[in-house]
Simulated scan of single mutants.
Amino acid sequence: MNNTSSPRFDSVQCLDTRGLHRMAWTEWGDPHNPRVLLCVHGLTRQGRDFDTLAQALAVDYRVVCPDVVGRGRSDWLADPAGYAIPSYVADMVTLIARLNARELHWVGTSMGGLIGISLAGLQNSPIRKLVLNDVGPKIEFEALTRIGEYLGERAHWATVDEAADALWELSKSFGPHTREQWLALTRPQLIPDGAGFKPHYDPRLALPFHAVTPQVAAAGELMLWHLYDQIQCPTMVIRGAESDLLSAATTQLMAQRGPRARVHEVAGVGHAPMLVQPDQVEAVRSFLLGP
């Protein structure tokens, strides 16, 4: 019998403009299960964010949580211009081909949701159910400005606890967590740096991010709405009730357009729910496994 409660680690080679890079992933559940759930994280995060959700769904799915290139255990790109949604979509197509999934479901938090929209909106998309966690085609530019204030900043912490405290100051909008829960979310975010630790992502992610102007963001929004309107699969959007990135107005439009997403709002949370608390896990589980 397969052990569904322990993670496994693997990687796949993906193509970029300078050659090949390695994308790592964490996997839970039966490796032979043809029903695959891909969980894709936010901008500066990594796949271990989904450990709690993955363990809850490992009986029903082969749960695969990639570290998007430039984060976690994945390679950093030689050309930081490749840190963009189209490149990430191409990497996910490579991963999906490796997994040989017969039925593919998707949970995407923030950036992971944008990748999901971009893939689910393509003709012959393999995605059969889609969960978008606090993200939609329209992203409030003020939220991008807030994120840009810390993205790519050099940081060094002497201990894991010091790092956890510092990251919590940036992440209070994630909502209430116990100290144990927050430490579990923090440890994979760190990489050894001399006598201490630094963030486990390529700081050059900030270069293409900071190049986004309101005009560029508006053009991206038009493209994302076009893709969203093409989505054919059942879709749920989770919104932190206090989110500054996904507005209530955009969420309402997502319920009326395209796949007419089911909406689940999480009280007391901003951007973005971390899908660790039991009520959030159950919301995702009931949607994915429901009719």
Score class of each variant (00 low, 15 high):
Asp202Glu: 09
Thr251Ile: 07
Lys198Gly: 07
Tyr150Met: 14
Leu245Asp: 02
Leu205Val: 07
Leu224His: 07
Glu169Phe: 11
Glu221Asn: 08
Glu149Arg: 15
Gln256Lys: 14
Glu149Val: 12
Pro203Trp: 03
Pro234Lys: 10
Trp225Gly: 00
Leu246Ala: 02
Asp161Gly: 13
Glu221Gly: 04
Phe197Glu: 00
Arg146Val: 08
Pro208Asn: 10
Val212Trp: 01
Arg239Phe: 06
Ala241Val: 13
Tyr150Asp: 13
Gln232Trp: 03
Arg154Ser: 13
Lys172Trp: 06
Pro234Arg: 09
Phe141Asn: 01
Leu253Cys: 12
Pro192Gln: 09
Ile147Lys: 04
Arg179Gln: 13
Thr178Gly: 05
Arg179Trp: 14
Asp202Ile: 07
Pro214Phe: 09
Leu167Cys: 03
Pro259Phe: 01
Gln230Thr: 04
Val216Lys: 15
Arg204Thr: 08
Gln252Thr: 14
Ala166Arg: 00
Leu144Ile: 14
Arg257Phe: 07
Arg146Asp: 09
Gly194Glu: 08
Arg257Met: 08
Ala248Trp: 13
Ser173Gln: 11
Trp157Val: 01
Arg257Asn: 11
Ala219Glu: 14
Ser173Met: 08
Met223Ala: 14
Thr145Gly: 05
Met236Gly: 00
Gly175Ala: 10
Pro176Ser: 11
Met223Leu: 13
Gly194Arg: 07
Thr145Val: 13
Leu190Gly: 09
Thr235Ser: 11
Leu170Arg: 14
Asp244His: 11
Asp161Arg: 03
Asp244Tyr: 07
Ala248Phe: 14
Pro234Trp: 04
Phe197Cys: 02
His156Lys: 08
Pro259His: 01
Leu227Trp: 04
Phe209Val: 07
Trp157Ala: 01
Arg260Cys: 15
Ala164Pro: 01
Gln256Gly: 13
Leu245Val: 09
Ala255Phe: 10
Phe174Ala: 06
Ser173Asn: 12
Val216Leu: 15
Pro208Arg: 02
Ala164Glu: 02
Ala211Phe: 06
Ser247Ile: 05
Ala218Tyr: 09
Tyr150Cys: 09
Leu245Gln: 02
Glu153Asp: 15
Pro234Asp: 11
Leu151Lys: 10
Arg260Gln: 15
Gly194Ser: 11
Asp244Ala: 11
